[in-house]
Design a protein around this nucleic acid. Structure first.
Length: 323
DNA sequence: GCGGATCAC
DNA sequence: TATGGTGATCCGC
């Protein structure tokens, strides 16, 4: 009885809608609330859109933040300086300088990589790009320490799933630009490693559509396509042209992309920013710990501040709530 | 320094 | 395949 009544109501809904909005007649259309469809027209049904289909769930950012925090706790164990890009994405540095194999072997925790001396030499050399990060590069031969990065990453993803019942995908590559692209390769719930050899990187770049690269969006793609450029290797072949048509920051970016270069510099992740601190003493405390971190870093790298100079603290009123 | 465009999420 | 809203960055003025 109730069922039939409901049925009639849905039928009426659809017909009413079609009557009142004839312009929707030939378009896939559905009637319903935020969370459930009551009915749909036949065009929509062709696409599998039917009554009683759940459509939109309300967002719950408090929940997302909480889960994100759990995942970040796991991230931190692999790279304490990991860089979150959003609630569900982050860059981690899995590079371990040579000579830390023993420490790893002695570690009782299989999932833990010692962060000791992490990326010191590496980050000093590469504030930005890292052309000599390749394993076959003559100047240096960084090595991924431990069983393999792939296993470490697999384990990390496994732990994320155990803890949150959420699957994750990962891209493993010599730099962030490539890692981002790689992370798309085996979505969902997979990973892809691009070896750190010049050959592998160039092969990978060769036929990579420019649109895949983070930073090249819809508009840039259209413009490049209009110039006959659709892949990254095209970018490299047209640098002269591009340097005339685009701004310097734009075309140098294109050039880096075409060479498979990207940033390897993952800035220190600070849970706290000055902006979030309203009390002056809190701000001062943060400032102090930042200075101490800096001092520690410099010590590790064997750097000193020349005695004829001063360390300057730049006070940026904009950063503070209190002005 | 501001507004518009582009981009990622 | 589209869609909305937001924050960051870049560019031209």
């Amino acid at each position: 009885m109730m069922l039939q009544k409901a049925k009639i109501t849905e039928e009426q809904l659809r017909k009413q809608k079609l009557r009142d909005c004839p312009e929707l007649k030939d378009k896939p259309m559905a009637v319903g609330s935020m969370s459930m469809l009551s009915t749909s027209n036949y065009h929509a049904r062709k696409f599998g859109v039917r009554a009683a289909m759940p459509v939109i769930v309300p967002t719950n950012f408090d929940k997302y933040r909480a889960v994100s925090e759990e995942i970040r706790e796991i991230f931190a164990e692999y790279d304490p300086h990991f860089q979150p890009m959003s609630l569900d994405e982050a860059y981690l540095n899995f590079y371990r300088p040579p000579g830390t194999e023993e420490e790893l072997a002695e570690s009782s925790r299989t999932h833990y990589f010692s962060a000791k001396g992490s990326s010191s030499e590496y980050s000093r050399r590469h504030k930005g790009l890292s052309p000599d990060l390749f394993e076959d590069s003559p100047s240096s031969s960084p090595v991924f320490v431990g069983t393999s990065v792939e296993e470490a990453v697999r384990e990390m993803r496994f732990r994320i799933e155990q803890r949150t019942r959420l699957t994750a995908s990962a891209g493993i590559a010599p730099n962030m630009m490539l890692a981002k692209v790689c992370s798309d390769k085996n979505k969902p719930n997979g990973q892809y490693r691009l070896p750190s050899t010049r050959e592998a990187v160039m092969d990978f770049i060769q036929n990579l559509p420019v649109r895949k690269v983070s930073g090249i969006g819809k508009v840039s793609e259209k413009m490049l396509n209009a110039l006959g450029i659709s892949t990254c290797s095209h970018l490299g072949q047209q640098m002269a042209l591009l340097s005339l048509l685009f701004s310097e920051t734009a075309w140098t970016h294109f050039m880096e992309v075409s060479l498979g270069l990207g940033s390897t510099y993952i800035p220190r992740y600070s849970a706290m920013t000055f902006k979030e601190l309203s009390r002056a003493e809190d701000q001062f405390a943060l400032c102090k710990t930042l200075c101490e971190d800096l001092a520690e870093d410099m010590k590790k790298e064997g750097l000193k501040v020349p005695h004829d100079r001063h360390v300057c603290l730049i006070y940026y009123p904009k950063c503070f709530n209190t002005g």
